[in-house]
Design a protein around this nucleic acid. Structure first.
Lengths: 228, 228
DNA sequence: GAGGACATTTTTGTATACAATACTGCCGAC
DNA sequence: GTCGGCAGTATTGTATACAAAAATGTCCTC
């Protein structure tokens, strides 16, 4: 995406670029992220690449194996459950707070998000739709005016994106935006109790839409290659 | 602490060492962490030091200012409130889960923690007492068998340690261990509702024991120097 | 022909050298 | 006397070079 930017890429910009690529499933779980390769792509040295990879590793988006290199993380079934457990503790109450601080501008921002989501779905860009769907949750946390919780949710949303890439069973791609619509309605009506409940059940729906049976899709990329 | 270890220090060990030093308030908020200086102390190059500092920066324990260097973080009053807001969302429910999975071994582990805490207090080592007090909370999260939530709480506890260093008003140093005792009792009795409530009020007590008035102790070290 | 050991190659881990940026002290002008 | 600019110094940011580890491919032995 940024191969030919004028100023040299920084560790932060590379990390952001990679994070987005992972988010949008252009870099699927298990992908090897070679340092030389990335350095060549972005026109920077391995030093800077390593800084970016370390940053992503701290967010659990890439796994760093000693003397082996960096790989796009492959959350286990257990991790998947845990991430949504954590989100279930944080997001409903955060949605309530956001509802209490809602105003016309914020409502419009959320509406724009949903519109962009729909546009991505219509364009057949599922990866981008997932990304935007996650951003919707982060935006709500931001509106709750809790920067710390927002940062935590951002991380969990990013990991959720990986989880969706691994465990999503394509049944109804549109159920999500319906839930998001309902949330906006609750926000607009100022019904904070409802917003909290909607978020709670929305997250529950998300988990149940995943295929988290204890099959062996956990470990390395070899299993995936064998199953093809 | 590790100046004369046989094998060379790794980025991880340096990060752990620094984290502990920050935890125990041996490195107070605002302390400059020069790369050359640290490299000399641990007998490693700046490359490794930088990796450790970046790791700590991701956990918000140190602040990285571009072309300025690394400093032990100085959470603002706002951040302090936010950190405890997040803990209030996560820890009570986690204490409940831990209670439901409690057994004799785990109870003993928690009791040992408290004993160590008391020993540190008796020895006048307040820094270590704060560290152990934090570990108590992390241990509970671990017992809830939620690695993801445990990691989040670990980060919040570490930041809480900085907040305590900055905003703690020394009144009753022993109120904490009393709350921890009460929690153990609830665990032993298997009263998960009580455990959840106790954790909730314990966190509330912690916040109220801080001096979070909007005084100007926020920004750089200059303000602190002026007030002395 | 199969298995294991060794050498090769590739890739990461670490240190060092250079460049860029910000800070400190000095000097001159107003 | 104070303010503004300028040079020197120190520290971080980045790149490159070297060392170590792991993976792979080849060859020899059984």
């Amino acid at each position: 995406m940024n191969e030919l930017r004028s100023s040299p890429a920084t560790a932060e910009s590379v990390a952001a670029d990679l994070e987005r690529a992972i988010h949008e499933h252009r870099l699927p779980p298990g992908t090897k992220l070679g340092e030389d390769e990335l350095g060549e792509v972005y026109g920077i040295s391995r030093t800077t690449v390593r800084a970016a990879l370390q940053s992503l590793a701290h967010h659990r988006l890439v796994e760093l194996r000693r003397n082996r290199g960096a790989f796009v993380a492959q959350p286990t079934v257990r991790e998947a459950r845990e991430v949504f457990e954590a989100r279930a503790l944080l997001e409903p109450r955060t949605a309530r707070s956001a509802c209490q601080r809602m105003d016309a501008d914020k409502l419009q921002t959320l509406q724009d998000h949903i519109d962009a989501e729909h546009a991505a779905i219509d364009a057949g860009d599922a990866g981008r739709a997932v990304y935007l769907s996650g951003q919707f949750h982060i935006e709500i946390a931001r509106m709750a005016d809790q920067a710390t919780i927002e940062a935590i949710i951002s991380e969990l949303v990013a990991r959720s994106s990986l989880i969706i890439a691994l465990y999503w069973q394509r049944r109804a791609a549109l159920c999500e935006s319906h839930a998001h619509h309902a949330l906006i309605d609750a926000f607009a009506a100022g019904k904070d109790d409802l917003a909290e409940d909607l978020m709670k059940s929305h997250l529950l729906d998300l988990v149940t839409s995943l295929d988290l049976r204890n099959r062996t899709s956990i470990p390395g990329s070899l299993r995936e290659a064998l199953s093809q």
